[in-house]
Write a protein that binds this DNA or RNA. Structure first.
Lengths: 359, 359
DNA sequence: GGTAGGTTTGGAAACGATTCCAATCGCGAT
DNA sequence: ATCGCGATTGGAATCGTTTCCAAACCTACC
């Protein structure tokens, strides 16, 4: 047995409690608590003895006992449509960053955009007595009633639920982002831009579609209903929608993809149809993802500050107790990142030959 | 105030406790507990009354009280180098999937590959009394001592720590994956394959480098020390390493990138140097990521079953209590996914013209 | 009608922390 | 010598569960 010491050293012995430390130091539990939490006054000699005992016993206060008494757990819940989605992952990183500075843990769970599942998660979080919930919501308002029962602070991110206007939110100015993209496309000379909607964790798709329609109208370009298509959810659906669009209307010169899933579909389908980007068709995608820069040509995108969104959501959650009544949502800007996937339509002056590309 | 009901409905009223339910139903707390947990025998009439009272009061058992008594929290900790990394994200999804079936929550935190930070996280998890920890470890063994103090089950994934051989692990057969890739490259006729090492969450980089060296030697190809380069960490370092390689040795015909970060660097640098893939240089990358398929040409990769790795890690954690002594690691296969980024070197028979590509 | 045996039931003791409150201890001032 | 006051200290209550254990109750059988 000697020499076989690893992480499994002592799987049986129970962890030391505050009582053990008190006994070892020859003081009362109250004193130990005072020393370890730094509150109240303790004589230097006693403090030293307690600290030594705690170190000796490898004492680690139980968050359970502490949480029970203090009525707060020091943990918060994060509800996401999908951890695997780059936007959500980046968002999570932001939440984690901020939570760390606050000394909170983060319990993560995924809803897969299913309201029932989201409700179940909220229910579980409530049972766990998390100090608050941050969510990229998918669901109907009903699922969030559970949060109110325990008076749980909630912050929504990316999207809001229309039936719950009172919930504080951290949003991205998607409207402005889409507007900039359409503006750019129309400015290049595309009179009939197409819109490829689809699953987009982190925003209501309708917002983008509406922004698209409004901007196209405003700029005096033509809004061709045949050119705005929507995919349900999933890669395949987006691919099918894109394929349908390109097949039905071989004359499209520019498409705005409402998320990275439809964006990916657009790139793939364009290649499938042997359309050159941007010579034959220009593509702009909402959401910056690592591969956008690796594409050939690199994709022009509308970038959302996902990480910052997460950080801010967490900050709002902390400050929430102070604010009464409804807080105006925090809105962060989206940015148009011009790379190489757009050019004037064929036949227009300035259309570049195939080889030219940004970067 | 009327009509202003949202999630913030009752921020003040304290959540109902088991005592409230007992009082409302006119029974003792023990009976309520029995009804709600389904254990013991209760008369149908009583059961009904208790359930009604619980529903009425919107009672939700506190995980704190329950955890304290039961000495288990129903939550497990997940330590990752980086949530943002596609491998880690996919791995997390697998853990979440499995945890859900087990009814456990997952507390996530990121180490950024910093042993000190990792140790701190483990320390915090131990304080939280998680039921177990799953980790893609970065650190030295010292950080994991804390886990032993509370007899915390730990499962390592992707990598193992040499000093802690007793910790159960779920691994991917990286060696075989790299071997397959080198085999493929050499089979195509590349006599001097290059190796581009770099940060690769989820594996020890040395494993891949060693596997590369061994395989090259075995196959009778030539191992040119000048062609194996390593990057520290971060995109920039990988980019610099790749640029250095291509600049120093314009004669490279094939490179194996040891992860998606060096892989990205290789693609970018190749484009920068106006090298055509695969005509001028063939590229294989370890780790499949969404953009690999979107590249032009689509990248040939060694794919690791990240999601399954996560699922299995979680399973192993649950089963751990049963097993005594050291468990042999679970090893999952890596798979070579041939796409369009490799071809015989120029001048070899069968080298395809520029336009040909897979899919 | 009494009792054995089973089913329901509720009180109370943990679980591990924090914190109020009263008690003890010095010690200088009256 | 006694009082008062501030600094230390520890006991005990509390947080919300689960579960042991004993009491109460019911039924059926002798």
């Amino acid at each position: 047995m000697a020499g076989d010491e690893g992480v499994e050293m002592a799987p049986d012995r129970r962890a030391a409690t505050i009582k053990d430390v008190a006994a070892a130091a020859g003081v009362g539990v109250a004193t130990v608590s005072r020393v370890l939490s730094g509150t109240g006054s303790v004589s230097p000699a006693t403090r030293e003895r307690v600290q030594a005992a705690a170190r000796e016993l490898d004492y680690r206060p139980s968050a359970l006992g502490r949480g029970l008494k203090l009525r707060r757990t020091g943990s918060l819940g994060l509800v996401l449509p999908d951890v695997t989605d780059p936007f959500c992952a980046e968002f999570t990183a932001g939440v984690l960053d901020c939570a760390r500075t606050l000394g909170e843990h983060v319990i993560v769970d995924v809803s897969h955009d299913d309201p029932a599942r989201e409700a179940e998660i909220v229910e579980r979080f409530a049972g766990q007595r998390v100090d608050g919930i941050i969510a990229v919501p998918s669901g109907d308002a009903a699922g969030w009633r559970a949060a109110s029962a325990v008076g749980l602070p909630v912050v929504f991110a990316g999207r809001v639920l229309d039936d719950l206007p009172a919930v504080p939110a951290v949003l991205c100015d998607d409207r402005a982002g889409v507007r900039a993209a359409v503006d750019y496309l129309v400015g290049l000379g595309h009179r009939r831009p197409a819109f490829l909607g689809g699953p987009a964790p982190g925003t209501a798709v309708e917002v983008r579609e509406r922004a698209f329609r409004d901007t196209v109208a405003e700029l005096g370009a033509v809004l061709d209903e045949d050119l705005v298509v929507r995919a349900r959810s999933g890669r395949d659906s987006a691919y099918a929608a894109a394929a349908g669009l390109f097949q039905r209307r071989p004359d499209v010169t520019a498409v705005l993809a409402a998320g990275h899933v439809p964006g990916e579909a657009a790139v793939l389908v364009a290649r499938e149809f042997d359309l050159r980007v941007p010579a034959d068709v220009s593509i702009v995608m909402v959401d910056d993802v690592p591969w956008a820069e690796l594409c050939d040509p690199p994709l022009t995108v509308v970038s959302r500050p996902a990480r910052e969104l997460g950080y801010r959501a967490c900050e709002v959650l902390r400050r929430r107790p102070a604010t009464v009544g409804r807080t105006p949502p925090v809105v962060l800007p989206a940015e148009l990142v011009v790379r190489g996937s757009c050019s004037p339509p064929t036949g227009m002056p300035g259309a570049p030959p195939r080889s030219s590309r940004a970067r």
